[in-house]
């Protein structure tokens, strides 16, 4: 698909700004997204092409404003729902539970 992920040759994204001594992960949630994705991938819940396409199907604005592990999280949630592994209602009830538990 001609998505915004197909970045090669585009202008206007500004300087590259490499971070010196960058850590492997910047936040605890990034660690968990990485680990859960690998465990789910290893468990055969989706293949690599489905995963990449899951990222590409994000909205263009969301893709460009979101970080790498936000892309992964989006694809994980989308694919696991599409494949019937989880339902949005199950997920929503967990969101509610953790949002309440956090306060």
């Amino acid at each position: 698909m001609n998505g915004v992920h197909d970045l090669g040759g585009m202008h206007g994204f500004g300087p590259i700004n490499p971070e010196p001594n960058e850590p492997v992960f910047h936040h605890e949630w990034e660690r968990r997204v990485f680990g859960v994705m690998m465990a789910a991938f290893g468990g055969g819940h989706f293949n690599v092409d489905q995963f990449r396409h899951g990222i590409e199907r994000m909205g263009a604005v969301e893709y460009l404003s979101g970080s790498y592990y936000e892309h992964w999280l989006h694809a994980l949630e989308a694919l696991l729902q599409e494949h019937g592994t989880i339902t949005v209602d199950e997920l929503a009830s967990k969101w509610k539970q953790f949002a309440e538990g956090a306060h």
Partner: peptide, 9 residues
């Protein structure tokens, strides 16, 4: 419109 690994450029 489907997934592809062929970049536009």
């Amino acid at each position: 419109e489907h997934h592809t690994r062929l970049p536009r450029y």
